[in-house]
Structures are given as structure tokens and as C-alpha cells.
Amino acid sequence: MDLEEVKKIWQEADSLKEQKRISDERIKNMLKNEGKSALDKLINTARNYTNMMIPLGIIICVFSYRFFEAGGLYPVCPLAMLLMCILLEPFEIYLYRLLKGIDYSTMTVREVNSRILKYQSIVKRWEFYGIAIFIVYMAIWYYLYYKLIFGDEIVWWFIIFTAAVYVAGIIAIPKLYKKLYYDNINKIKENLKELEEFE
């Protein structure tokens, strides 16, 4: 295919010629979805994460009140989660500002693409590590909770239930990772490579 030839054809023969133009009514209906574009959705999600990060840490502390009642080293577990939420808050704000600063009308295609890919790359990697950290944390939390409630007693139904949940999680995790992480991150890497070639 010779692009020079295609250009001539593109300019001359108009294969995209429409018989009808889109009516004003249809455009007005589109405008009713103001605030619901893909970028708006991403910004809202980023804002929600920013707003809920510290409250999430506090909620976990509230649910872990037995740990605080027990004293000793037990409160370290929920407090560690609260601390992590507090430390993550500036990071969430950074991601929110990264998206909020995108202006399609004044930025170049390269600039916009760079920001979006940076955001996607960070979020996907965070999902990868976040899931692993969360599972380890919940395993520790359940173990401590078990010790608090049941002490040295062996409560089979609780152990079997928890084991079943973790086995199901271990089976589901590789599939989840593939869906959430590998497929998306490979696509993002491809796009990042293309972006580098354009610099």
C-alpha cells in the first residue's frame, strides 16, 4: 500500500460521505452526558480513592477494637494499616492531580498520552502489589483475631472456613492477575514503547 496514492484517493473520493448529518437533537442528547466522559470517570475514581484512603484505615481500626482491648502488641496490626493508609494519601493525591491536570485542548497528543500511560502504569503495578500485601495482611489479621477470640483452642469450623477462603483465593489469584495485570500492563508497555519512539 502506497500511502501517497491513498492520500490522493482520500482527498478525492469521499468514501465517508454521509447522506445525513447528525442532527442537533442528537448532539444535544450527547451533551446530556456531560461529566461522564472516560477521563471524567478516571478523575472521579482517583478523587474517591483520595477521599476514602484515611477513612478506610480508621474503619479497619474500629473493626479491630478487640485488638486495642487486648493491648500489648495486638494494636500494632490495625495501626500498621492506618499508617499505610496515611502514607498512601499523598500518593493518591499525586495520581488525582496527574489526571486533573490533563487538558485536551492545550496539551499535545504526546503529553496527554504520556500522562495517561503513566497513570495506568502506576495503577496497574499498585493493583499487583496491593493485592499481595492485602492477602498477607488479612492472613496476619485473621491469625491474631483467632488467637484473641479462641486462644489456644482449636476451632475446626473457623480454621476450615478460613483455609477454604484462602485456597479459593490462591486458585483465583493467577487468573485475576492475568486479567488485571499482565494483559493490561503488556498493552501499556507497548504504548509506552511507541511513545518513546516518538520522542
Binding site: 473520493a13 468514501s15 460521505k17 442528537r26 452526558n33
Partner: peptide, 20 residues
């Protein structure tokens, strides 16, 4: 919810159309 904007393109079986 999206708005249907199906264009009715003119039927064009020419070679130029194949190239596009």
C-alpha cells in the same frame, strides 16, 4: 448511554473504496 449516530454511507463499490 450513547446516542446512535449510524451514518448511511453511500454505497460505493469502486476500487478506490477497496483501497480505503
Amino acid at each position: 448511554s450513547f446516542v446512535d449516530i449510524t451514518y448511511v454511507a453511500e454505497k460505493d463499490d469502486s476500487e478506490n473504496s477497496d483501497i480505503v
